[in-house]
């Protein structure tokens, strides 16, 4: 069904160990700095200081209102297309072995990808003018 791909001949979990080290280092750095600045800076809090800044006028209502649906749509489209992109990766790594047959299959896939893409374009999902 599937041939042994590069995915299987993975490096050992140990090769990820340095990444853990780096994660620790980054965490330590960020944490320390945050901690340090918390104590270093002066603290003279007044209620006016803690008001959110809206170009100098008084804040009106809660900022957390629904934003334009376009942004949401973009996010959803990203999720969908990104996953399709993910499919290209294993293909790209193996595509020499798969040869022309694989290429044709990929063409079909791209055709569907483009089909979806043109559909959303036509539907106006990415029209930001209005």
């Amino acid at each position: 069904m599937f041939t042994d791909t590069v995915l299987l001949s993975a490096t050992t979990p140990f090769s990820y160990f340095p990444i853990v080290l780096q994660l620790c280092a980054a965490l330590g750095f960020v944490g320390l700095t945050m901690f340090a600045t918390h104590f270093l800076g002066p603290k003279r809090k007044t209620s006016d200081k803690l008001v959110t800044f809206e170009s100098g006028i008084e804040q009106k209502g809660n900022a957390r209102q629904p934003v334009a649906i376009k942004y949401f749509l973009t996010a959803i489209l990203f999720v969908l297309f990104d996953v399709e992109v993910i499919f290209f990766y294993p293909y790209a790594v193996n595509f020499r072995e798969l040869g022309w047959d694989g290429f044709l299959a990929m063409l079909l896939f791209v055709a569907f990808f483009l089909g979806g893409f043109f559909y959303i374009l036509k539907k106006g999902a990415l029209k930001w003018e209005d």
Partner: peptide
């Protein structure tokens, strides 16, 4: 050394 401000809301 700047003051750290976290808005109230």
């Amino acid at each position: 050394f700047k003051e750290e401000i976290i808005p109230g809301s």
